[in-house]
Design a binder for these strands. Structure first.
Lengths: 132, 132
DNA sequence: AAATGTAGTATCCGCCCGGTTACCGAACTC
DNA sequence: GAGTTCGGTAACCGGGCGGATACTACATTT
């Protein structure tokens, strides 16, 4: 199956690189999935464990496009997912994003006491351990 | 419905760096706004021109958080927006994304030359996305 | 006064996204 | 056969996002 990701109602003229690449990461948890697959292939359940609040439905949806699937011949049949080359190309961007995120978290924790400025605080922040 | 509780190294960190930084870029056109403000401050109308398909409503919404506003004392009163330091920190990630996007578009157009059939997609020319 | 240009806000509304729940099915164990 | 584990899919559904349109507000120009 081809990349199903670009199905916006607007036939986007391929003019903006940013829009194009972001279309690949569109949808909740997509960058997290890429992140956890970056180091090594993982199985469905492992990803569910890595990203605890993702639902099976969404994870299954995210695992199409940037990812290849390989069925393993295990006792209960399982599957292994790995990033496609295109997925790997997104890693620098994702790492840069993670770097910013780490800085953000560090600053928030450092200045947690003086919470006065109107920063961009999301209503619900999702815990999801992105280790390194 | 129990997850295979195979606890890994991390227990429950406050937040995921990826999720946090992506929260900043959440919403349509947000990265584009950051992109166009990266080089220099711009005014509302300039951004609308840079990103033709964005609506004023959404642009106005995006211009809160990563951006500072300065009212100019011009003939019709105008406003100038500039990235905050936090906004600038996102630039490496955005540039990495744009890089991937450029590659995608190149491959895309290369493969599109095969399909030079009747359907010509209406290409509304967009101002160059600042080749970075 | 009327028109124009700039900078937004208000309101409506359709639709997609994603959470939840239930269900499926293969393989293995008991 | 019943139960369990792993890996999904199907259907429902509520909320939010964002497009479209209309409107406001201020200052200058005609």
């Amino acid at each position: 199956m081809g990349l199903p990701v670009r199905k916006s109602k607007v036939a986007a003229p391929p003019a903006c690189p940013l829009t194009e690449s972001l279309a690949l990461l569109r949808g909740a948890w997509a960058p997290n999935v890429v992140w956890y697959l970056s180091a090594e292939p993982r199985r469905f359940g492992e990803l569910r464990h890595d990203i605890p609040r993702i639902s099976a439905r969404v994870l299954s949806a995210r695992l199409r496009g940037l990812v290849t699937r390989r069925v393993l011949d295990t006792s209960p049949p399982s599957a292994e997912y790995a990033l496609t080359p295109l997925g790997h190309e997104l890693l620098p961007a994702i790492q840069a994003l993670a770097s910013v995120g780490r800085k953000l978290i560090a600053e928030w924790e450092a200045g947690a006491s003086k919470r006065a400025s109107g920063a961009v605080r999301a209503k619900r922040s999702q815990p999801a351990t992105t280790g390194s």
